[in-house]
């Protein structure tokens, strides 16, 4: 086995472990927002690690997998931002042990300003 194949395999295994922990987090966390925390972070790093591992295992693919990783980096957090915002606006409550919710405090002010801007 060549040295870069070993690095590729190790990266794929690390990615798989992170994906597993992400799935476990989605089950164990108490509310939507905390689940999203586990979901976004672990799956982004897991997917990146698996994809880059494949790129290193087959060195000819490294530029392609690099571009794919870049797109995942740019788009994955946007989707979780949108989901979190939609969940909060739909009135899904935070976990009862949550400490503070600044967004709920400021929400009416934000809505009023947005309506003023949109006429």
């Amino acid at each position: 086995m060549l040295w870069y194949e070993i690095i590729g395999i190790v990266m794929i295994i690390i990615g798989a472990i992170f994906l597993f922990l992400g799935a476990l987090g989605i089950i164990r966390m108490p509310d939507v927002y905390n689940r999203m925390q586990a979901g976004t972070k672990a799956t982004t790093l897991g997917a990146l690690s698996v994809i880059m591992g494949v790129g290193i295992y087959h060195p000819a693919w490294i530029f392609k997998t690099g571009i794919i990783s870049l797109f995942i980096l740019l788009t994955n957090p946007v989707s979780s931002n949108a989901l979190a915002r939609a969940a909060h606006n739909a009135g899904i409550p935070l976990y009862e042990k949550s400490v503070v919710d600044k967004y709920a405090e400021d929400k009416e002010k934000i809505r009023a300003e947005e309506e003023k801007q949109n006429g």
């Binding site: 987090g25 927002y33 709920a104």
Partner: peptide
């Protein structure tokens, strides 16, 4: 985050 997930006590203290 992984450490918090596997910890049996689930040590989180969330807020916005």
């Amino acid at each position: 985050v992984a450490k918090r997930v596997v910890n049996p006590k689930l040590p989180i203290n969330p807020g916005i």
